[in-house]
Design a protein around this nucleic acid. Structure first.
Lengths: 138, 138
DNA sequence: ATCGCTCTTCAAGTGGACTTGAGGTCAAGA
DNA sequence: TCTTGACCTCAAGTCCACTTGAAGAGCGAT
């Protein structure tokens, strides 16, 4: 349970110091303790940052992430706002998985496609389909 | 096979006209025909736009999408650039699916969690865990 | 004590992806 | 004919999420 510096946190979470400070000002991270003016974090902040990072990569806005992380604040009806958002984002994540899977299929298809017919392949338009036998040559 | 207006395309693809024009200037769409100055699209552009939309939602940049859509241009080594990017994006999409699945788990957990212990739940910090028996009350 | 390193704040800048606004064209309908 | 609605171009604006830069402070090692 030894405290770590912002530099160490940044390294471990794969996020820049500037971004970490930014998240702090934006209320995504609790204000850490200070020693000699410098931030001192508990190790748990790294997990939090990793969650933030993942959420960002999934297209969540900082606003949404803030709400999700805060959970229930004193002023909101107990956890209702949270639940609503979580449920919504859950649907979105599910949709994202579907789309990602479809895109995966497209990319795989593109990587092994012959593209003989125009419109064979949406992803890269294979027109004009310069072919040699069934195999694409250029 | 009747040609459609930009308005119709926008409606069908769920993308604004301004965005469609923007994609055209950015080279993500081939310049459509004109009738009386107005764009006239083939119906296939809708599919293309849907692919673009999905790709954007998955975090692809327009730059990447352009390359993926173009496939092999005359000047690039035959489809090499395309294949490289496609392979890279395939890895990324796979990683995305993993992360999305993890996030899904987090959200589901958050939606049914009791959060008795601090650190029980990363997603929303359950401290102070105001509890009644095992059930969270506020 | 001074070098080098990491850290600090704060304001301003950046980049990507669009959107918005102004000002204009065109065709159909009342 | 006049209006309405959908379209056009082009420049400028906007939003989000950071990043960058300037100017400086604390601290361990030489």
């Amino acid at each position: 349970m030894h405290p770590i510096t912002i530099g160490e946190v940044a390294r471990q979470a794969g996020i820049r110091q500037s971004a970490i400070r930014y998240y702090e000002t934006e209320g995504l991270l609790p204000a850490p303790g200070r020693v000699g003016g410098r931030r001192v974090f508990g190790a748990d902040v790294v997990d939090r940052l990793r969650v933030i990072k993942t959420a960002r990569e999934l297209g969540f806005t900082l606003d949404e992430i803030r709400t999700l992380l805060h959970g229930f604040s004193p002023d909101t009806p107990p956890s209702e706002r949270w639940q609503r958002l979580a449920a919504k984002k859950l649907l979105e994540v599910n949709a994202l998985i579907v789309r990602a899977t479809r895109m995966k299929g497209l990319l795989e298809k593109g990587l092994r496609c012959d593209c003989v017919t125009v419109g064979d392949c949406i992803l890269h338009d294979c027109s004009p389909p310069v072919t040699l036998g069934r195999r694409r040559i250029a």
